[in-house]
Write a protein that binds this DNA or RNA. Sequence first.
DNA 1: AATATTGTTCGTAATTTTGCGAACAACAAA
DNA 2: TTTGTTGTTCGCAAAATTACGAACAATATT
Lengths: 110, 110
Amino acid sequence: MSCCKKNENSFNEEQLARFAKAMGHPTRIEILCFLASMDSCYFGDIHQELPIAKATVSQHLKELKEAGLIQGEIETPKVKYCINRENWEKAKTYFASFFDTLNEKTICCK
Amino acid sequence: MSCCKKNENSFNEEQLARFAKAMGHPTRIEILCFLASMDSCYFGDIHQELPIAKATVSQHLKELKEAGLIQGEIETPKVKYCINRENWEKAKTYFASFFDTLNEKTICCK
DNA sequence: AATATTGTTCGTAATTTTGCGAACAACAAA
DNA sequence: TTTGTTGTTCGCAAAATTACGAACAATATT
């Protein structure tokens, strides 16, 4: 058998880029930090923390939701948001694996 | 002394967002993975890996360089690129800290 | 039925990002 | 001096992002 094949990534590059893109805005990082510091909260609480229009907040939340990092639930008349823990762990693992690939290089079979 | 103050982040939110933004494109993730799998390589090697114009590759490299994740060095007539290890570690730590904030919540002083 | 509360969606404008070919710069080789 | 090699920069077009106010939807209250 020939030797020294490339190590397979333990993360999906497309998915990692999607997570990263969602995190690539200061306001969205702020929202994520805010949500990570509590179990859950309402839209209004998030809006109150930020110096921007509610329409803009709503848009950022939508992007974070579509990236899978948070989830929202209607609790009439409010909307409750929280971290999506399953995907949070997934993202955590992906980023960790990605940064660990440095120096790993190749593996040799046999 | 009053109690239960919020935990200070062990990462800079602005900086984290900047790292994330740079990583927020599939092509740039691909470049980073490629570079992370070796000590260094030339522009041409990177271009060869990708199905896009060299002008576009150059632009992506510029963004990664400005974000501090990679560095370039002229080795006439070629340009040698590699991971910026110092900032790579910094980014690795920032992302790890960020994802670890979940569940940490608050700390109580006595 | 009219009002109030809470967020989302729509329409719009300004800016940024992405991608390309062409032109260019720096240097080595013929 | 001309030619070739390697990448960057320029100028442009298309698309996506960011931000806002206004309008709207859903529900509860008066």
